[in-house]
Computed example of a mutant assay.
Amino acid sequence: MSRIRVALVFGGASEEHPVSCLTARGVASALDPERYDVVGVGITRSGRWMVVPREQLTALEVRAGHLPELTEDGPTESGGEAMLLPGKSGGELLRRTVGGSALAELGPVDVAFALLHGPFGEDGTIQGLFEMMGTRYVGSGVLASAVGMDKHFMKTIFAAAGLPVGPYAVITAADWRRDPQQALKSVSQLTYPLYVKPARGGSSIGITKITDESQLEDAIAFAHGFDPKVIVEEGFENARELECGVLESLDGGLPQVSAVAEIRMHTESGFYDFQAKYLPEEQVDLDVPARDLDPEVVREMQALASRAFEAISGEGLARVDFFLTAEGRPVINEINTMPGFTEHSMFPRVWAASGVDYPTLVDRLLQLALQRPTGLR
């Protein structure tokens, strides 16, 4: 049998570019080379697409505390600029060699795995491109990806589905432009501490924890550096941060939900920020599975995770994050339709604890994508 051609699309224009590079390394390393023909398609921060050979994908790693980055001048002479065009079998991948003008055909793409985190990748944009190309791809479709990226509409849909969400306020770009004081007033209903976030971001980038009103405007200004739309969420004091993974069923049944894991911070702020997530020297423990958690609470959270996945019409995979309040009540914080696959990421860990190792997990996601029809479904 011929190998399956997989385009690993990574990098991108968002602030989560380095995280995407680490995820690409993990997935490329996990794919069986006898079964999968892996083609790396890296997207620089400026939006340039380039072919990245597999051996360079697997070399992307944290070095001396620095996260990897795609450079604008291309990876090596074995790479080159890339483009995806419509094709009979789901898209044709082309390459323009470094220093040349001719296009060389690299062959059809059987399935794309977009390992892009944040805006312009995880938010339905590239999913729409794949739909137009007729290319099968891993993960949720356009709508579910967009909803999963926008915390405002995510919470709106969860609440409409009867799922528990915490108190929050939204400040749109138009709100802030028309009447900043009224926008600030909309936050007054919330109880401090508050978390001020870009509404369409991830990896805890652009987030500020504030403890009183005097810090609010600066926190909004900081979040505006990443997104003109801001969400302000009420914090839960003495709450536990818990997560579980969701996988779509191969046979069309209910989604499968993993063990529940816990994030325990040892820093003074207790805030699971970008540094803690991706730089291993930070003081954080990931308990997989979570310790001393009532089995009934575990079952409740797993049921809520499955309902959240289906509420947004999720496909493929997701990670659902919870707060367990001091009173023992689970509250959904967010759903992530393309969670990271780095060695420090929670998603592969919870599935390993549930009996699904990393290579099996990646293979299952590709099989789900390959069996899914193109077009409306």
Rank of each mutant, 00 (worst) to 15 (best):
M1Y: 11
I4E: 09
G11R: 12
E16H: 10
P18M: 09
A24V: 02
A28I: 00
P33V: 01
P33M: 02
R35F: 04
D37P: 00
I43G: 00
T44L: 14
R48H: 11
R48E: 14
W49P: 02
E55C: 12
Q56A: 06
Q56G: 00
T58W: 01
T58L: 00
T58M: 06
A64H: 15
L67R: 11
P68V: 03
P75I: 15
E77Q: 07
G79K: 08
E81K: 06
E81R: 13
L85S: 03
G90P: 10
G91L: 14
E92R: 13
R96D: 02
T97N: 06
S101K: 14
A104T: 15
E105W: 05
P108H: 12
V111H: 10
A112C: 14
A112Y: 05
G118S: 12
D123F: 02
D123V: 03
I126M: 15
E131K: 10
T135H: 09
Y137T: 04
G139M: 11
S140V: 12
V147K: 15
V147M: 15
M149Y: 06
K151Q: 07
H152N: 08
M154S: 15
T156W: 07
I157K: 12
I157L: 15
F158G: 03
A159F: 05
A160Q: 15
A161S: 15
V165P: 01
P167H: 05
Y168N: 10
I171W: 00
T172R: 05
A183Q: 00
L184E: 12
L190D: 09
A199G: 04
G201W: 08
I210E: 03
Q215E: 14
E217V: 13
E217N: 04
E217A: 14
D218I: 02
D218G: 13
A219G: 03
A221R: 13
F222Y: 12
A223M: 13
H224V: 01
D227A: 08
E233I: 11
G235L: 04
G235I: 04
E241V: 10
L242Y: 07
G245K: 13
L247Q: 03
S249V: 03
S249Q: 04
L250E: 03
L250S: 07
D251C: 00
G252S: 08
L254R: 12
Q256H: 12
V260F: 07
V260L: 09
A261F: 06
R264N: 08
R264L: 10
M265E: 09
T267I: 02
D273V: 10
D273G: 10
D273Y: 06
A276F: 02
K277H: 03
L279M: 05
P280M: 01
Q283I: 00
Q283C: 00
V284Y: 02
D285T: 15
V288G: 03
L293M: 12
P295Y: 04
E300L: 11
Q302M: 01
A305H: 09
A311E: 04
G314F: 13
A318Y: 05
R319P: 00
R319K: 05
V320F: 05
T325V: 10
A326Q: 12
A326G: 14
I335E: 08
T337H: 05
P339V: 09
G340W: 09
P348I: 00
P348Y: 06
V350I: 11
W351T: 10
S354L: 07
V356T: 08
P359Y: 07
P359V: 04
T360V: 08
R364K: 12
R364Y: 03
L365N: 12
Q367K: 14
A369K: 06
L370M: 14
Q371S: 14
L376P: 08
